[in-house]
Design a protein around this nucleic acid. Structure first.
Lengths: 147, 147
DNA sequence: ATGAAAAGGCAACATAGTTGCAAAATCTTA
DNA sequence: TAAGATTTTGCAACTATGTTGCCTTTTCAT
């Protein structure tokens, strides 16, 4: 990879952090890198394994928490009780989330993807219930695993 | 409450357990009772708190696990990483689940409800993705909290 | 009533997540 | 760019959550 490109990524990461009022530290850059390198979502465990040799567990927790608060990443609910995080699209970073897309979990490779172009449907609820937010997680076979 | 009714519930609980090839024990009866007494879903923590004085933590885990395997209860994914369980409708107990309904989490009272009559919508996925199961969780204000 | 089989309790362990505090890194501004 | 204020980190200790093996108790079938 050309040095130019790497430089660009570092610059973009730093800019993103500053825009979010977060100081630019090694752990934050490293963890953001993990997300950028990877198309799917990351479980906390993944991140800890990949960044954990260099950083303390507590730092990983606090970093992810800060990223969620600032709208850099969002959480994806799963049935197996393992929180997964994925990068928000740029519009989120402003402050409030626009997290209206569908998530997809592959039952074969276990990767989780944000289907940014698939918006969550309106759900018709029984009388008396008032919807504020709809979460949709589809389980199935992803593009790569479908032979 | 008349003795008759209580007797009936106990009988139904015992019958359900037997139908599922589970021996009728005190902890299983107690935990099933908790679900029947309550309209919404129960988090593991709730159950442990309510049944935990009488039963060991491990027993609660194993009981819930057995119930899920037999299709007596099902799990509901949540964003806050706390597994919630709810009774399946009778048809589930046969063996395979018919868990195609929408779940509702109240942001005020934090109760979780199965909206048994609201079926999960079809989601149109990008080319290459193949859906097997769709999970929908709606967050909002429930019937009781909506003033 | 009795013995086989299943379930429960206990202990010990593994993993996940939190908190307070002192040390280190980052940022500000002069 | 050096110095001080501020933020972040690492460490230690702790709570909570979940798992496993083994022995005792309960349940069930006869």
């Amino acid at each position: 990879m050309p040095k130019q490109a790497t430089q660009d990524i570092e610059t973009r990461i730093a800019a993103l952090l500053k825009r979010c009022d977060l100081s630019v530290t090694e752990s934050r850059r490293k963890i953001l890198h993990l997300f950028l390198e990877q198309p799917g979502a990351l479980a906390h465990g993944d991140i800890e394994r990949k960044a954990g040799e260099k950083f303390d567990r507590v730092t990983v927790y606090r970093t992810l928490q800060a990223f969620v608060e600032k709208g850099i990443i969002h959480t994806i609910p799963t049935a197996d009780n393992s929180i997964r995080y994925a990068l928000c699209k740029d519009e989120c970073s402003g402050g409030h989330h626009h997290d209206h897309h569908v998530h997809f979990v592959c039952s074969q490779c276990d990767n989780t993807y944000c289907l940014d172009d698939v918006v969550t449907p309106d759900i018709k609820l029984p009388k008396g219930y008032q919807a504020e937010h709809v979460e949709v997680v589809v389980e199935g076979v992803c593009k790569n695993c479908k032979g």
